[in-house]
Write a protein that binds this DNA or RNA. Structure first.
Lengths: 206, 206
DNA sequence: ACATGGAGTTACTAGTGAGTAACATGAAGT
DNA sequence: ACTTCATGTTACTCACTAGTAACTCCATGT
């Protein structure tokens, strides 16, 4: 990977910036991994630094502080869920909900997704933490909305949207606790099965 | 309320022991409250002591250490769930599962129940932590067993017992995250609705 | 009165971990 | 060669918290 740059733009040595971005990326990945497997408090900045073969102060060159680090990771995962929040207007509410849930589930099976939970129950404050709270609220609100719409268009059975949304979120958040990257089931398969099971329920359909 | 003891047994001043037990109880309640609302790491022993109007060393008079404290609390909750593990042999597997889930859900809505989750994701080790792990495994195993039995007796639809058990556990564990003692819904009502929703699924039954 | 020991306190140790200051190095531009 | 700046490092500070030592105090039984 030699530097092929011939025309050096006066401002912003492109290479430098690209390299820096790349490193920031590596920092976030290492952080995600560490936080995902050990939680917030049991993960020290020295741990993360060690994973990268650097020292703690260097980390501070790429992140403002510990909260910033974990928030950045979690926010990235949150955004991936939020992308799925607007479904196809033509579909039934149930189909739109299923679409959202599938994405939600898949994200929760990643290290980045796990960090959403980490941020949430470590009570990370500051702008990063607040952003997470708002994002999760937004997802919750959308789920409730789709549940309500679904009872109208007939695609979803009547029920308490608030409780049902909590139930679904709980089931999906739980994935973060047990999913194993190297296991037999891929994230997509888990997502698929969860959605089906939530949709169908336990009792047999006659 | 008053100490009505007239015959003082030579050994073991009954009063003393009773009082001590009472205090140990108060310590566990304060600990449960603290751990439930702030998690393991954000709860200091000074916090707990302060809730009781005593000092930290006094706490050590009633508990071996921090881990012992949180484990004791969680174990107590766990036992309440385990009580419901053996259902009525006459009932269908679905009914037995529902019975277990109802209890599980109700416990998760208490401070003690919340501490199960706290212990689990703070990775508390030692005898207390191991006991929790085993207990949770036992519950998981029983759920899978009932799910399998249910497909046989026809009370439960076919599905992957492992995944389904994870899904259910996730939904129920989630209760710990949001349930509000002072809210509109009682723990029993939440448990009831969760069980119904899990049983019926999202899609309408025709 | 006096000894005993249960219950609690004050004042510490020791370890850990976030965050920082100040210095080192090396590549790029002049 | 000389400066500059990005990138790291070493070596700290500072705060916090689990756990302990060594006492004080008071109720009880003799």
């Amino acid at each position: 990977m030699a530097r092929m740059k011939t025309v050096k733009s006066p401002w912003a040595g492109r290479d430098r910036n690209a390299e820096r971005e790349e490193k920031r990326e590596a920092v976030l990945h290492a952080a995600a991994e560490a936080f995902a497997e050990r939680g917030y408090h049991r993960t020290s900045l020295d741990d993360i630094a060690a994973r990268l073969g650097i020292t703690k102060p260097t980390l501070y060159y790429y992140a403002r502080n510990k909260d910033d680090l974990v928030s950045a990771v979690a926010t990235r995962a949150l955004d991936r869920i939020l992308e799925a929040i607007e479904g196809d207007r033509e579909s039934t509410a149930l189909a739109q909900l299923q679409h959202l849930l599938r994405h939600y589930a898949e994200v929760m099976a990643t290290d980045f997704g796990r960090c959403i939970i980490v941020v949430l129950d470590a009570h990370i404050g500051g702008p990063g933490g607040d952003l997470m709270q708002r994002g999760m609220r937004q997802i919750d609100a959308r789920m409730r909305e789709l549940l309500a719409l679904g009872t109208e268009d007939g695609s979803i059975a009547r029920g308490d949207p608030k409780l049902t949304a909590f139930m679904i979120a709980g089931a999906l958040n739980g994935i973060a606790r047990w999913f194993d990257e190297g296991g037999a089931l891929s994230a997509a398969m888990v997502a698929e099965k969860f959605v089906n099971q939530l949709t169908a329920g336990l009792a047999p359909r006659r």
